[in-house]
Amino acid sequence: MSFWIYQLLVGLSFGMLLFISSAGLALIYGVMRILNLAHGAFYAIAAWLAIQVAGYSGSLWLAAVCGIAATVFIGILIERYLLRRIAGDELPQALMTFGLMLILGDFALWAWGGTPQTLARPDWLTGPVRVAGVAFPAYRLFVIAVGVLVGALLWYLQARTRVGAMVRAVADDVETARSLGINVSLLSSGAFATGTALAALGGIVGGPIVGVHVGTELEVLLLSFVVVIIGGLGSLPGAFVGAIIVGLVDTLGKALVPDFALFTLFAPMALILAVRPTGLFGREP
Protein backbone atom coordinates (compact mmCIF):
# COMPACT_ATOMS: atom_id res chain seq x y z
CA MET A 1 0.00 0.00 0.00
CA SER A 2 2.69 2.47 1.01
CA PHE A 3 4.48 1.66 -2.27
CA TRP A 4 1.47 2.87 -4.19
CA ILE A 5 1.01 6.02 -2.11
CA TYR A 6 4.67 6.84 -2.54
CA GLN A 7 4.54 6.26 -6.31
CA LEU A 8 1.35 8.28 -6.52
CA LEU A 9 2.95 11.24 -4.81
CA VAL A 10 6.10 10.96 -6.90
CA GLY A 11 3.95 10.79 -10.02
CA LEU A 12 1.89 13.76 -8.92
CA SER A 13 4.94 15.89 -8.15
CA PHE A 14 6.50 14.97 -11.48
CA GLY A 15 3.16 15.78 -13.12
CA MET A 16 3.12 19.23 -11.54
CA LEU A 17 6.68 19.84 -12.70
CA LEU A 18 5.58 18.83 -16.19
CA PHE A 19 2.59 21.16 -15.96
CA ILE A 20 4.83 24.12 -15.09
CA SER A 21 7.17 23.19 -17.94
CA SER A 22 4.49 22.62 -20.56
CA ALA A 23 1.93 25.31 -19.69
CA GLY A 24 4.09 27.82 -21.53
CA LEU A 25 4.12 25.65 -24.64
CA ALA A 26 0.32 25.52 -24.56
CA LEU A 27 0.06 29.25 -23.96
CA ILE A 28 2.40 30.15 -26.81
CA TYR A 29 0.61 27.84 -29.21
CA GLY A 30 -2.80 29.05 -28.06
CA VAL A 31 -2.05 32.71 -28.60
CA MET A 32 0.53 32.71 -31.39
CA ARG A 33 -0.04 29.39 -33.17
CA ILE A 34 3.69 28.76 -32.89
CA LEU A 35 4.93 25.28 -32.17
CA ASN A 36 7.90 26.30 -30.04
CA LEU A 37 10.45 23.50 -30.24
CA ALA A 38 12.94 25.62 -28.26
CA HIS A 39 10.73 25.36 -25.20
CA GLY A 40 12.79 22.66 -23.53
CA ALA A 41 15.96 24.65 -24.22
CA PHE A 42 14.56 27.55 -22.18
CA TYR A 43 13.99 25.10 -19.33
CA ALA A 44 17.57 23.82 -19.55
CA ILE A 45 19.21 27.22 -19.91
CA ALA A 46 17.38 28.54 -16.83
CA ALA A 47 18.48 25.52 -14.81
CA TRP A 48 22.13 25.83 -15.92
CA LEU A 49 22.19 29.55 -15.21
CA ALA A 50 20.62 29.08 -11.78
CA ILE A 51 23.19 26.43 -10.87
CA GLN A 52 25.96 28.77 -11.98
CA VAL A 53 24.61 31.72 -9.98
CA ALA A 54 23.92 29.57 -6.94
CA GLY A 55 27.50 28.37 -7.11
CA TYR A 56 28.87 31.94 -7.11
CA SER A 57 26.54 33.54 -4.62
CA GLY A 58 25.17 30.76 -2.48
CA SER A 59 21.73 32.33 -2.69
CA LEU A 60 19.01 30.18 -4.21
CA TRP A 61 16.60 33.08 -4.48
CA LEU A 62 19.12 35.09 -6.45
CA ALA A 63 19.81 32.02 -8.59
CA ALA A 64 16.11 31.55 -9.35
CA VAL A 65 15.55 35.21 -10.19
CA CYS A 66 18.64 35.44 -12.40
CA GLY A 67 17.87 32.18 -14.17
CA ILE A 68 14.32 33.22 -15.01
CA ALA A 69 15.16 36.83 -15.91
CA ALA A 70 18.02 35.90 -18.24
CA THR A 71 15.97 33.20 -19.97
CA VAL A 72 12.99 35.52 -20.46
CA PHE A 73 15.37 38.09 -21.91
CA ILE A 74 16.64 35.51 -24.44
CA GLY A 75 13.04 34.57 -25.21
CA ILE A 76 12.02 38.17 -25.86
CA LEU A 77 14.98 38.67 -28.19
CA ILE A 78 14.05 35.52 -30.12
CA GLU A 79 10.41 36.54 -30.43
CA ARG A 80 11.15 40.14 -31.44
CA TYR A 81 13.99 39.63 -33.87
CA LEU A 82 13.49 36.13 -35.27
CA LEU A 83 10.03 34.60 -34.92
CA ARG A 84 8.23 37.84 -35.73
CA ARG A 85 9.80 37.85 -39.20
CA ILE A 86 8.23 34.55 -40.20
CA ALA A 87 4.83 34.94 -38.57
CA GLY A 88 2.00 32.74 -39.73
CA ASP A 89 3.86 29.78 -41.18
CA GLU A 90 3.90 26.69 -38.99
CA LEU A 91 6.67 24.63 -40.55
CA PRO A 92 9.36 27.37 -40.79
CA GLN A 93 8.53 28.41 -37.22
CA ALA A 94 8.90 24.87 -35.99
CA LEU A 95 12.20 24.49 -37.85
CA MET A 96 13.57 27.81 -36.65
CA THR A 97 12.78 26.98 -33.03
CA PHE A 98 14.34 23.55 -33.55
CA GLY A 99 17.49 25.30 -34.74
CA LEU A 100 17.40 27.56 -31.69
CA MET A 101 17.11 24.48 -29.51
CA LEU A 102 20.24 23.05 -31.14
CA ILE A 103 22.11 26.33 -30.64
CA LEU A 104 21.10 26.76 -26.98
CA GLY A 105 21.73 23.08 -26.22
CA ASP A 106 25.17 23.12 -27.80
CA PHE A 107 25.96 26.39 -26.06
CA ALA A 108 25.09 24.77 -22.72
CA LEU A 109 27.36 21.83 -23.52
CA TRP A 110 30.17 24.23 -24.38
CA ALA A 111 29.68 26.49 -21.35
CA TRP A 112 28.86 23.97 -18.64
CA GLY A 113 30.23 20.70 -19.92
CA GLY A 114 28.72 17.28 -20.11
CA THR A 115 28.41 16.44 -16.41
CA PRO A 116 24.84 16.25 -15.11
CA GLN A 117 24.22 18.72 -12.32
CA THR A 118 21.48 19.46 -9.84
CA LEU A 119 20.49 22.63 -8.11
CA ALA A 120 20.77 22.63 -4.31
CA ARG A 121 17.45 22.57 -2.51
CA PRO A 122 16.68 25.13 0.17
CA ASP A 123 17.46 24.03 3.75
CA TRP A 124 13.84 24.19 4.92
CA LEU A 125 12.85 21.68 2.21
CA THR A 126 15.55 19.07 2.66
CA GLY A 127 13.91 16.74 5.14
CA PRO A 128 11.19 14.16 4.66
CA VAL A 129 7.56 14.73 5.64
CA ARG A 130 5.17 11.99 6.70
CA VAL A 131 2.15 11.75 4.40
CA ALA A 132 -0.50 9.11 5.17
CA GLY A 133 2.09 7.13 7.08
CA VAL A 134 4.71 7.31 4.29
CA ALA A 135 7.90 9.31 4.60
CA PHE A 136 7.98 11.63 1.63
CA PRO A 137 10.56 14.24 0.54
CA ALA A 138 9.37 17.70 1.49
CA TYR A 139 10.73 19.16 -1.73
CA ARG A 140 8.40 17.02 -3.84
CA LEU A 141 5.43 18.32 -1.87
CA PHE A 142 6.74 21.81 -2.50
CA VAL A 143 6.75 21.07 -6.27
CA ILE A 144 3.13 19.95 -6.05
CA ALA A 145 2.26 23.17 -4.24
CA VAL A 146 4.05 25.34 -6.80
CA GLY A 147 2.30 23.50 -9.65
CA VAL A 148 -1.12 23.99 -8.12
CA LEU A 149 -0.30 27.62 -7.43
CA VAL A 150 0.85 28.26 -11.01
CA GLY A 151 -2.24 26.49 -12.32
CA ALA A 152 -4.53 28.56 -10.12
CA LEU A 153 -2.78 31.77 -11.06
CA LEU A 154 -2.96 31.04 -14.79
CA TRP A 155 -6.59 30.04 -14.48
CA TYR A 156 -7.37 33.25 -12.61
CA LEU A 157 -5.51 35.37 -15.17
CA GLN A 158 -7.20 33.73 -18.09
CA ALA A 159 -10.74 33.49 -16.71
CA ARG A 160 -11.04 36.55 -14.51
CA THR A 161 -8.92 39.38 -15.88
CA ARG A 162 -9.09 41.74 -18.84
CA VAL A 163 -5.76 40.51 -20.17
CA GLY A 164 -7.04 36.96 -19.92
CA ALA A 165 -10.15 37.88 -21.88
CA MET A 166 -7.97 39.40 -24.59
CA VAL A 167 -5.78 36.30 -24.66
CA ARG A 168 -8.87 34.14 -25.14
CA ALA A 169 -10.13 36.45 -27.89
CA VAL A 170 -6.82 36.23 -29.77
CA ALA A 171 -6.71 32.45 -29.33
CA ASP A 172 -10.22 32.18 -30.76
CA ASP A 173 -9.87 34.43 -33.76
CA VAL A 174 -6.96 36.78 -34.38
CA GLU A 175 -8.72 38.89 -37.02
CA THR A 176 -11.79 39.56 -34.90
CA ALA A 177 -9.60 40.32 -31.89
CA ARG A 178 -7.63 42.81 -33.96
CA SER A 179 -10.79 44.49 -35.19
CA LEU A 180 -11.87 44.89 -31.55
CA GLY A 181 -8.79 47.01 -31.01
CA ILE A 182 -6.69 44.42 -29.17
CA ASN A 183 -2.97 44.97 -29.61
CA VAL A 184 -2.21 41.48 -30.89
CA SER A 185 1.49 42.12 -31.36
CA LEU A 186 1.98 43.25 -27.77
CA LEU A 187 -0.14 40.41 -26.46
CA SER A 188 1.87 37.90 -28.49
CA SER A 189 5.13 39.21 -27.07
CA GLY A 190 3.62 39.04 -23.61
CA ALA A 191 2.46 35.48 -24.15
CA PHE A 192 5.85 34.42 -25.47
CA ALA A 193 7.64 36.04 -22.52
CA THR A 194 5.23 34.43 -20.07
CA GLY A 195 5.63 31.06 -21.76
CA THR A 196 9.40 31.38 -21.58
CA ALA A 197 9.18 32.37 -17.91
CA LEU A 198 7.10 29.27 -17.19
CA ALA A 199 9.64 27.04 -18.92
CA ALA A 200 12.40 28.71 -16.92
CA LEU A 201 10.46 28.29 -13.68
CA GLY A 202 10.11 24.62 -14.56
CA GLY A 203 13.87 24.36 -14.98
CA ILE A 204 14.46 25.92 -11.58
CA VAL A 205 11.77 24.02 -9.69
CA GLY A 206 12.90 20.80 -11.34
CA GLY A 207 16.58 21.64 -10.77
CA PRO A 208 16.88 19.91 -7.39
CA ILE A 209 15.02 16.73 -8.39
CA VAL A 210 15.71 15.98 -12.05
CA GLY A 211 18.61 18.35 -12.51
CA VAL A 212 19.98 19.17 -15.94
CA HIS A 213 22.30 17.36 -18.32
CA VAL A 214 23.18 17.09 -21.99
CA GLY A 215 19.94 16.53 -23.88
CA THR A 216 17.63 17.89 -21.19
CA GLU A 217 16.26 20.37 -23.72
CA LEU A 218 15.01 17.57 -25.96
CA GLU A 219 13.67 15.42 -23.12
CA VAL A 220 11.69 18.29 -21.63
CA LEU A 221 10.41 19.26 -25.06
CA LEU A 222 9.22 15.74 -25.82
CA LEU A 223 7.56 15.34 -22.41
CA SER A 224 5.86 18.71 -22.79
CA PHE A 225 4.69 17.62 -26.24
CA VAL A 226 3.15 14.51 -24.78
CA VAL A 227 1.40 16.62 -22.16
CA VAL A 228 -0.11 19.14 -24.55
CA ILE A 229 -0.97 16.49 -27.13
CA ILE A 230 -2.90 14.49 -24.56
CA GLY A 231 -4.54 17.60 -23.17
CA GLY A 232 -5.11 19.37 -26.46
CA LEU A 233 -2.83 21.96 -28.07
CA GLY A 234 -3.29 25.42 -26.62
CA SER A 235 -5.55 24.43 -23.74
CA LEU A 236 -4.40 25.21 -20.17
CA PRO A 237 -6.86 22.88 -18.41
CA GLY A 238 -5.78 20.28 -20.95
CA ALA A 239 -2.14 20.84 -20.02
CA PHE A 240 -3.01 20.43 -16.33
CA VAL A 241 -4.86 17.15 -16.79
CA GLY A 242 -2.36 15.94 -19.39
CA ALA A 243 0.53 16.67 -17.03
CA ILE A 244 -1.02 14.64 -14.21
CA ILE A 245 -1.68 11.73 -16.56
CA VAL A 246 1.85 11.82 -17.95
CA GLY A 247 3.41 12.22 -14.50
CA LEU A 248 1.58 9.18 -13.19
CA VAL A 249 2.04 7.02 -16.29
CA ASP A 250 5.72 7.86 -16.50
CA THR A 251 6.37 7.21 -12.81
CA LEU A 252 4.44 3.95 -12.75
CA GLY A 253 5.98 2.92 -16.07
CA LYS A 254 9.49 3.48 -14.73
CA ALA A 255 8.64 1.58 -11.53
CA LEU A 256 6.96 -1.39 -13.21
CA VAL A 257 8.52 -1.83 -16.67
CA PRO A 258 11.72 0.24 -16.55
CA ASP A 259 12.97 -0.94 -19.95
CA PHE A 260 9.95 0.39 -21.75
CA ALA A 261 9.36 3.62 -19.84
CA LEU A 262 9.65 5.70 -22.99
CA PHE A 263 7.37 3.41 -24.88
CA THR A 264 4.73 3.40 -22.13
CA LEU A 265 4.72 7.18 -22.38
CA PHE A 266 4.52 7.67 -26.10
CA ALA A 267 2.25 4.80 -26.97
CA PRO A 268 -0.76 6.14 -25.00
CA MET A 269 -0.18 9.51 -26.63
CA ALA A 270 -0.16 8.01 -30.11
CA LEU A 271 -3.33 6.15 -29.19
CA ILE A 272 -5.10 9.29 -27.96
CA LEU A 273 -4.06 11.14 -31.09
CA ALA A 274 -5.33 8.35 -33.26
CA VAL A 275 -8.72 8.30 -31.54
CA ARG A 276 -9.01 12.01 -30.84
CA PRO A 277 -6.56 13.95 -32.99
CA THR A 278 -7.16 17.20 -31.09
CA GLY A 279 -6.44 15.81 -27.61
CA LEU A 280 -8.76 15.56 -24.64
CA PHE A 281 -9.52 19.28 -24.35
CA GLY A 282 -8.60 20.49 -27.83
CA ARG A 283 -11.02 21.92 -30.32
CA GLU A 284 -11.19 21.19 -34.02
CA PRO A 285 -8.39 23.19 -35.63
Binding site: L82, I86, P92, Q93, L95, M96, F98, G99, L100, M101, L102, I103, L104, G105, D106, F107, L109, W110
Partner: peptide
Protein backbone atom coordinates in the same frame (compact mmCIF):
# COMPACT_ATOMS: atom_id res chain seq x y z
CA UNK B 1 25.59 21.38 -33.72
CA UNK B 2 25.62 25.11 -33.12
CA UNK B 3 26.44 25.75 -36.76
CA UNK B 4 23.65 23.39 -37.80
CA UNK B 5 21.26 25.28 -35.52
CA UNK B 6 22.35 28.54 -37.15
CA UNK B 7 21.63 26.99 -40.57
CA UNK B 8 18.06 26.26 -39.46
CA UNK B 9 17.59 29.85 -38.35
CA UNK B 10 19.21 31.39 -41.43
CA UNK B 11 17.32 29.19 -43.90
CA UNK B 12 13.92 29.85 -42.33
Amino acid sequence: VMVLGAIYVLVT
